[in-house]
Design a protein around this nucleic acid. Sequence first.
DNA 1: CATGAATGAGAGTTCATTCAT
DNA 2: GATGAATGAACTCTCATTCAT
Lengths: 204, 204, 204, 204
Amino acid sequence: MGITERKEREKAEMRDLILQAASDLFVERGYEQTSIRTIADKIEYSPATIYLYFKDKQELFHAIMDKAFEVLLHNFKSVEKIAEPISRMRALSEVYMKFAYAHPALYDLMFIMTKPMDHVEHAEDWDCGFQAFNFLLEIVEESIEAKLVNFKNAHLGALTVWSHLHGLIALHIRGRLLMIPEEMHEVLISESVDSMIELIQIKK
Amino acid sequence: MGITERKEREKAEMRDLILQAASDLFVERGYEQTSIRTIADKIEYSPATIYLYFKDKQELFHAIMDKAFEVLLHNFKSVEKIAEPISRMRALSEVYMKFAYAHPALYDLMFIMTKPMDHVEHAEDWDCGFQAFNFLLEIVEESIEAKLVNFKNAHLGALTVWSHLHGLIALHIRGRLLMIPEEMHEVLISESVDSMIELIQIKK
Amino acid sequence: MGITERKEREKAEMRDLILQAASDLFVERGYEQTSIRTIADKIEYSPATIYLYFKDKQELFHAIMDKAFEVLLHNFKSVEKIAEPISRMRALSEVYMKFAYAHPALYDLMFIMTKPMDHVEHAEDWDCGFQAFNFLLEIVEESIEAKLVNFKNAHLGALTVWSHLHGLIALHIRGRLLMIPEEMHEVLISESVDSMIELIQIKK
Amino acid sequence: MGITERKEREKAEMRDLILQAASDLFVERGYEQTSIRTIADKIEYSPATIYLYFKDKQELFHAIMDKAFEVLLHNFKSVEKIAEPISRMRALSEVYMKFAYAHPALYDLMFIMTKPMDHVEHAEDWDCGFQAFNFLLEIVEESIEAKLVNFKNAHLGALTVWSHLHGLIALHIRGRLLMIPEEMHEVLISESVDSMIELIQIKK
DNA sequence: CATGAATGAGAGTTCATTCAT
DNA sequence: GATGAATGAACTCTCATTCAT
């Protein structure tokens, strides 16, 4: 250990520095407005330097997405210990929504933007997406088995829950909730999530 | 009437010509690939001419959005005659989904893209969105009154239903359903819509 | 006539202006060192302007080549009136060599450089080359018929004469005659041309 | 001998390693596509290392040229034993043409490209060129003395023969023989070489 | 001796937009 | 009303080269 290790750490730090700067800028101004030059300026390095750490702009933004997924997945883990499936689903939804509220630009990148996905030609390149989806899928499976919800199959259930959550966030982030007074947004969204959890349960 | 009127009519026709060309190109090739130049070429006018009818690219695309909303609203009208609210909601959902499948690029522009909305500073600039939302809102109101669904209030119900539909489409259009085998998408989405209509109803 | 005509003339003049500037720069510094920006600077227009007249850098340089061929062919014409084939060939050679000496950079572009020919995928795109070659070909044909030279066929004769002339110029232009004292170059080259004309003739 | 010697040997070996890699790449992909980085990658050293052995890219390519000349000169040697000058000249021409056909990229570097010669400021820097030329020069001298050819002087004869051979190859390599059907190229070029040898001889 | 890291300089190209005519 | 001509401001990316370590 020693030199090699330090070098590697430094390299990783530099990657992170770029990633962070790119992330910030991109959160501030969006993908299109975030040029390699802007990023370079922000970290006070030359544009060429960025190409030492990332093949091109897409790879850079794909990396931001990956990091974001890591955070999301990490947050998801906190929910694993909840045994009861419906409670787990409620908790998962909350974690998901919190993440979206806390990092709207990242959410945008992960689930809305076109660009970083152009890179993902084969489904395998998006296994972070898979992992995240599996969290939900398993909960639905368990819930079906325990006869707590009545979806025809787990995929249908997971898709229904997810698309609802995504729809709420996506409409919010992309400014399509103008027909609802802004001060109601947060409450309404939160209530909608709760609603959904109630609705899917089998009434006894 | 006379000269002034004719001039205005001609002006409107020209606007429409540009709009149609822009719309076609945009639907064919996407926003990025639709430059002012391409549009001008298509209608065989000069790029400068376009600026006589639209302030800038954003306004132009906002106008395309408006036209698309007109179509959507027109489609919505076919549903008005259905008296029973739940059936009407089911029909409305179908119309909405069909529109999205038929014109994904337009749907994208209306409900996902950032660009055309940057233009909408005051809520009033988006009254087409309001109108569309009202269709749903009224249905939910009626359904609540008739005790067919049990949402706390109409806005909550409408938001819940809409965000679910939007979520399905948005995930689909922007390629985020990789974790589900592609051949299942259509069926699953359709089933999810049906599911939702069932779930929200008060079980007797 | 009038406006349209004037506009066209102005357009042609602008094209020529660019062509001339590009030509000059390229003569001074070579193809690689002649960037679109340098050309733009020289004529005090913006780089983008150049793209209004030429699709890309290659087309621009192809156009320079075309113009150069026009000059060469025009010079060739002065020789047509000479009836006797051998004299005509001698005159043609002289014209060719003079052109090469007068415009070495253009000669380079026409007959040595790689870049402008990448553009010429189909033989038809280089019909100026064909025309020039035909001048020589016809002379050789006549000479063979008149039993003044004894080449097996006209193509062989034309190729032999041309490649010799080209070889002289090419070695000279690209600085490969270092093994011969520089002050001898001109005389030697000129004598070599004369030599050739003598050598190919059938001795009586 | 000892340490110093070993060091020198190692240094020379490293130079050769770089040279070989550069040469291979250059032959495969051309000058433009052969960057310092590519070469470094190929030998699995860092780009900076190359600068320890060569001042800059030009010097490196000059060195490749030198090595190529060594091969050409070596091939030339096989001809030395032929006593009769005309036969020797014919053999030399063949060797020259064969080399050009076998290593067009190297031929290009040696006799056409501009880059490596920018480096040659003083004639002495190109003594490989001199040596090669001398082979031909001597043959012509002998031929003149033996009254087999009638050039005014040896330089004129050598230049005439060489420029013809070079012209053939140069036009071929740089794609300027479009006016002759491609399938005729090889035969015609070969016949042109034969022709020349015949033409220069004094008819008895 | 070797190199990892960094960069300055520059390449070609595109596009929304303006304005004199 | 329409436009031809022009442009400023970007853009991504590449490469030979340097230098502290």
